[in-house]
Amino acid sequence: MSEHIVPKSTYYTIFVLLLVLTYTTVQVAYFDLGPFNVVAALGIAFLKASLVVLFFMHAKWAPKLQKLIMAGALFWLAIMFSFTMMDYLTRFLDVAR
């Protein structure tokens, strides 16, 4: 398996981007967005995690099987979240009606 050589400049760019996004997280926390507080925080976190996985972990240049495995892991995480939320969001649902 050939290793993809990534120029150092890419890593520095991603690092700066991560810092900017961290700063954004802090700044956003000063505004009350109501129900979107969590959405904004998680959205930025997801963006940051994606950058780390894609560039620092070389997922962008990984073979298809590895990409499939990563997607599988994400899918399993989605199962955990969605099925747990299925409980929390329907606690007060009257199914008998």
């Binding site: 199962i79 099925f83 299925m86 409980d87 929390y88 969001l89 329907t90 606690r91 007060f92 649902l93 199914v95």
Partner: peptide, 16 residues
């Protein structure tokens, strides 16, 4: 996809 069956009497929503 089945773990919830351990929670039937723990306060799990009826739908789930």
């Amino acid at each position: 996809l089945v773990w919830g069956h351990h929670l039937f009497v723990a306060g799990l929503s009826v739908y789930s």
